[in-house]
Simulated scan of single mutants.
Amino acid sequence: MFRKVLIANRGEIAIRVMRACRELGVKTVAVYSEVDKNALFAKYADEAYLIGPAPASQSYLNMDVILDVAHKASAEGIHPGYGFLSENAEFSERCEKEGIKFIGPSGKAIKSVGSKIAAKKTMAVAGIPIIPGSESGISDLDEARDIASSIGYPVIVKASAGGGGIGMKVVRKGEELVPSIESAQRVAKSSFSDSTVFIEKYLEEPRHIEFQILADSYGNIIHVGDRECSIQRRHQKLIEESPSPVMTPKLRKKMGADAVKAAATINYINAGTIEFLYSKGNYYFLEMNTRLQVEHPITEVVTGVDLAKEQLRIAAGEKLSYEQKDIKQTGWAIECRLNAEDPLNNFTPS
């Protein structure tokens, strides 16, 4: 096990990881921006270092400074939490090159599912159901019209590099397609520096179901049950619950097996989440999140598995503490998110 770990994050998730470290006898290092100098997480850690001013680009996203602190503090590993650098393949690779363990997947694994188009191709080859749509980014508008016509309206235009619903456009009629593609491309370019978009069949009123994955470096992979996050606002999750209210033992076994297969396909190691859309008795791969999810505590509540501790053990080279037969979901857990919106500006996120 590690002797000391740096947590490259702030707030609740930093405290969560520090608590897991403390219970495993691991010393912790916090990094904080000027505005967070009196925050609880900065006081809770065994050591804390100022890394820059309030803007994240100058602090929590500054790889050079964070790695410099890790070396100064003699931290053996870095836990990225969620958000910030948690799904940054370059950061994972830099940690590896500098002899610091990234407590998460490899940069190669992150890259393999970072593009939604590439991820869909990979899962299709593995035999996992995917939503019908374009096989590559849209570059020809006439081809886009043909694809939309062949799969049937409504369709949805998505940013390949995106997340959180940014750049998504639902298209219900042919005349809406080109303006929607052009709008999605502009948003994708400004938000992700990648204008690539693709088309999928739009599923009406689907269920959004995800499976928590744990995988060690010895080839052991399990799923830690399911969560549902269908109740959303502006494509952002509002309520998550575990288990899903529509899940049956037979469906859980089948979807869980495909989730494990998805992780195995990209040689995934550590914690991750495979997300599916479920509609009218069928399910389809949506995307993979290569980090600990915000909603991970509800899985911990119903299974008794401490996901943060398992992340640390896996990264330290230990085998999984559980086999699939050990995972049981007992009871029910719900997480609700509070969102800040501006009522004077059409309730846009503030």
Rank of each mutant, 00 (worst) to 15 (best):
V31Y: 01
A73V: 04
G52E: 05
L50K: 15
V31R: 09
V26S: 00
G81Y: 04
A30I: 09
H79I: 02
D36F: 02
A14W: 03
V65Y: 06
A42P: 10
A39P: 13
G52I: 02
A42Y: 08
N9S: 12
Y49D: 04
A56I: 03
E34Q: 14
E23L: 12
L67V: 06
Q58W: 10
A20D: 02
E47W: 01
R10L: 06
K37W: 12
N9T: 05
L40I: 14
G81C: 09
V17K: 03
A73P: 01
I7R: 01
L40K: 14
V5P: 11
F2R: 00
E23P: 02
L40Y: 12
A54S: 15
A30P: 15
F2T: 00
F41I: 05
A75F: 08
G77A: 14
P80Y: 09
A30G: 12
E12F: 08
V5F: 05
D46P: 12
L61P: 11
N62Y: 05
D46W: 08
A54F: 13
V65D: 02
Y32A: 03
N9H: 11
A30E: 06
L67E: 06
E76A: 10
D68V: 02
P80F: 07
R16A: 06
E12N: 13
I15C: 03
A45I: 02
I78K: 05
L61W: 08
G52M: 13
A54R: 15
A56F: 11
I13W: 02
N9M: 10
S33T: 01
L24A: 04
D46G: 15
D68S: 14
A8R: 01
R22E: 04
H71C: 09
A42H: 10
S57V: 03
M18L: 08
S74I: 04
S33H: 11
A54L: 12
A8F: 01
E47F: 06
A39G: 11
Y49I: 13
I78L: 14
R19G: 00
A70N: 03
F41S: 04
A48D: 01
L67Y: 07
K4L: 05
R3K: 15
A56L: 07
A45C: 11
S74G: 10
Y60R: 13
I66V: 09
L6R: 01
D64F: 09
A20K: 03
G77N: 03
